[in-house]
Amino acid sequence: MNTNMNNQTSAKLDANNLKILEDQLNYEALMNKKFSTYAGYCTDAELKNLCQQAAQKHKQHYNELYNYLNSHQ
């Protein structure tokens, strides 16, 4: 019975957690955009590749957070 109650409580996110998720989503989106822009400026192939990898990693983090948020609606 206690497990059932915990599942119902954790199924919905409170306002504080929603704000934290919103901030983190904004951060990941910004970092993706920045690293994509940096990659466009790079002339060195190795540095360009590192920036593209960082952009992709932040995009992945954004998508994971977004999916987590959607799973708790």
Rank of each mutant, 00 (worst) to 15 (best):
N2C: 03
Q56P: 01
L69D: 01
K12C: 10
C51R: 00
E22N: 14
A11C: 02
A55Y: 06
L30N: 13
H72G: 00
K34L: 15
L65R: 03
Q8D: 07
L65Y: 09
E28N: 09
L21I: 15
Y68G: 03
N26K: 12
D14G: 12
Y62G: 00
M1P: 01
Y41R: 03
N2L: 13
L50N: 07
M1D: 08
N26E: 06
L13Y: 08
E28C: 06
Q73H: 12
L47E: 12
Y66D: 07
Q56K: 14
A55Q: 00
H72Y: 04
L65T: 03
T9D: 01
A54R: 08
N70L: 12
T3L: 14
N49G: 07
Q8C: 04
N7F: 00
N2H: 11
L21A: 10
L30I: 07
H72M: 14
L65K: 04
D14R: 03
H61G: 02
H58R: 02
T3D: 08
A54C: 08
N70Y: 07
M1K: 08
D14Y: 02
K12D: 04
S10D: 05
M1N: 04
Q56C: 08
L65I: 11
K48Q: 09
D14E: 08
L47N: 09
N70K: 14
F35E: 00
D23Q: 11
K33E: 14
K12A: 13
L47H: 10
E22F: 15
K34W: 13
Y68C: 00
N26I: 05
Y62M: 00
H58V: 03
T43F: 02
A55L: 04
Q53W: 03
D44I: 04
Q52I: 04
Y62D: 02
I20C: 08
Y38K: 01
L69I: 14
D44A: 14
A45N: 11
N4K: 05
D44G: 05
L21D: 05
L50S: 06
K57G: 12
Y27M: 08
A15H: 09
E64R: 13
Q52R: 10
S71R: 07
